[in-house]
Simulated scan of single mutants.
Amino acid sequence: MRLLIMGAPGAGKGTQATALAARYGVPAISTGDIFRHNIRNATPLGIKVKELIDAGEYVPDDVTEEIVAARLAEPDCAQGFLLDGFPRTMHQVHFLDRHLTEHGQALDAVVSLMVQPEALVQRLLQRAELEGRADDNEDTIRRRMEVYAGQTAPLLFHYESKGLLVEVDGTGSVEEVRQRMFGLVDAHTAR
């Protein structure tokens, strides 16, 4: 099973990605986790990524694509994967399409968690308070929403045109969203 999970910041991608990957027995690959690991360890990549994230910007395509390609080449991805946080731009979509085609693979579904923007801002402000995330102040959160809308949302149209998009209402409890998502993905991949 080869899946993507998408949604605006705060939509619950990380929480739901873990459950979805476990359901299908594939690794959950979060570019955010990879970046945070590098930031924590103050690697050259981590220092550069921290500056961009602190400004509410995304990491450049070529850097992200190189990291993802290396991760997809690892043995645990041979039978599938779930990508969380990638692709975020059409450049990354085309890169992923080429990469999968070159390896005789294709996506099975693209899960999109849909949540109203104001609800997302409130979720992220609460998370910032609970987790002490310095990168989550209201101005930065709103900037991330703008960047998401401008760069990432158009990807949904691409995947919809390929018949891969599975839209999931991301409101409600974690368990409610999870059960809704499982049902929709199961139905989509059974076709």
Rank of each mutant, 00 (worst) to 15 (best):
E74L: 15
G7P: 00
E160K: 14
R23Y: 10
P154F: 10
G170Q: 00
G32E: 07
M181A: 06
P44G: 10
A119I: 14
E176M: 08
L155C: 15
A21L: 07
Q79A: 15
R123F: 07
A187F: 02
V59F: 11
E57C: 05
L3P: 00
L100N: 06
H91M: 07
A17S: 14
D84E: 07
M90R: 09
H37N: 11
I39D: 04
H158S: 08
P44A: 07
T43P: 09
L96V: 08
Q105S: 08
A21R: 00
L72F: 12
G32W: 02
K48F: 15
L45M: 12
E51M: 07
V110I: 02
T101Y: 04
E65M: 15
G25R: 03
K162M: 13
Q122T: 13
Q151P: 05
E102H: 12
I67C: 07
L20T: 01
P117T: 13
R71T: 08
Q92T: 11
G170V: 02
V111K: 02
E66N: 13
G170T: 03
T89N: 14
D169K: 15
L156W: 02
D61C: 07
A134W: 00
A119R: 11
R36E: 10
G150D: 09
D135H: 11
G12C: 04
V177S: 01
G25V: 02
D139C: 06
V49S: 15
V115K: 07
R40M: 09
T171E: 15
A21H: 01
R180G: 03
E102L: 14
Q105M: 09
L184C: 12
L45T: 01
G132N: 04
V174R: 08
P27E: 11
R178M: 09
A190C: 12
L156Y: 00
P87L: 05
T101K: 14
Q179L: 14
R191G: 15
E167T: 13
Y24M: 03
G183S: 08
P60Y: 12
V49P: 00
I29W: 00
F157H: 14
F182G: 00
G183H: 06
N137F: 10
N137K: 11
A69E: 11
H158V: 11
P87V: 01
L96Y: 01
R36F: 11
V166Y: 01
A106N: 12
V177G: 00
Q16W: 03
Q126G: 13
A73T: 06
P27K: 05
E102Q: 14
D136R: 02
E66Y: 01
D76G: 05
L72N: 13
R2S: 06
P154E: 11
I141V: 15
V174K: 10
Q122G: 02
R71M: 03
Q116N: 12
A187W: 06
T101G: 09
R142V: 12
N38A: 15
I34L: 15
A19C: 03
V111H: 03
K50W: 07
E167Q: 13
I141M: 11
Q122D: 09
G172M: 12
Q179H: 08
P9I: 04
A22H: 09
L165W: 10
E74S: 13
H103K: 13
I141H: 08
M181E: 10
D97T: 10
T43C: 07
Y159V: 03
D76Y: 04
L120Q: 04
L164S: 13
H188G: 13
A22K: 14
G170F: 00
D108P: 02
Y159I: 03
Y58L: 15
L96P: 01
